[in-house]
Amino acid sequence: MQADAYVNLIDASRSADVSAELVLPMQSLMKRGVAAGQANADLSSLVALLRLSKQGAEAGKTSTKSPPTMRLAGPDR
């Protein structure tokens, strides 16, 4: 899963004065994946952790809502 190498990506981002806010949540998921015994799995295995997190947070709830869409801002959008 390359969780150890991800630390280097975060350190390099910070050294280059680039925000690591996008990759930090991914590092947290990777650490959870390793703790769950998925150290040798690929990144797609993290999807199951996201589903489990959502189920735990919304126990007993059902929703028919679609997830929100993200709109990109820019001169040609």
Rank of each mutant, 00 (worst) to 15 (best):
G60Y: 02
A20D: 02
M1Y: 11
R71G: 10
L72D: 09
Q27N: 15
L43M: 13
S44H: 06
A41Y: 08
S66P: 02
D4M: 10
G33S: 03
A59G: 06
L46W: 07
L22H: 06
A35L: 02
V7R: 07
A35M: 08
D11Y: 06
L72N: 01
G37C: 04
S15G: 03
R71D: 01
V47Q: 15
Q2P: 05
L46P: 08
D76N: 14
A16H: 06
R77S: 15
R51S: 14
M70C: 14
R14K: 12
Y6R: 00
A3W: 04
A12N: 11
P25I: 08
G74R: 01
S63I: 10
P67K: 11
S28K: 12
V23Q: 06
A73D: 00
I10T: 11
A12L: 08
D11F: 03
K31V: 08
D4S: 05
V18C: 13
S63R: 01
I10Y: 07
G74Y: 09
L24V: 15
P68L: 04
S28D: 14
D42Y: 09
L72W: 02
G56M: 13
L72P: 01
L24S: 07
L22C: 00
D17F: 04
A3T: 00
R71C: 01
M26R: 07
R51L: 12
K54P: 02
A5L: 10
Y6T: 01
V34C: 02
Q38E: 15
D17M: 12
T64D: 10
P68W: 11
A59L: 07
V47Y: 14
K65T: 13
K54I: 03
L24Y: 13
P67T: 03
L22P: 05
M26L: 14
D4H: 03
A12Y: 14
A16C: 04
S44P: 05
L46I: 00
R71F: 04
R32V: 07
L43P: 03
M70D: 08
K65Y: 13
A20L: 06
K54R: 15
A73F: 08
T64G: 12
L50Y: 03
A48V: 13
S44M: 08
M70R: 08
Q2S: 10
I10A: 02
G56D: 15
N8Q: 05
A35E: 00
D11N: 15
D4Q: 00
T69S: 15
G33W: 11
G60H: 02
S13F: 00
P75F: 00
L29N: 02
R32P: 00
T62D: 08
P67H: 09
D42P: 05
V18E: 12
S19D: 03
A39G: 11
D11C: 06
M30R: 00
A3N: 08
A48P: 03
K61H: 07
A41S: 11
A5G: 05
L52A: 13
A48R: 09
L24W: 15
A59Y: 08
S45C: 04
K65F: 07
S19Y: 11
S15R: 01
D76H: 12
A5S: 09
S15I: 01
A36F: 09
A73R: 06
P75R: 10
S44T: 05
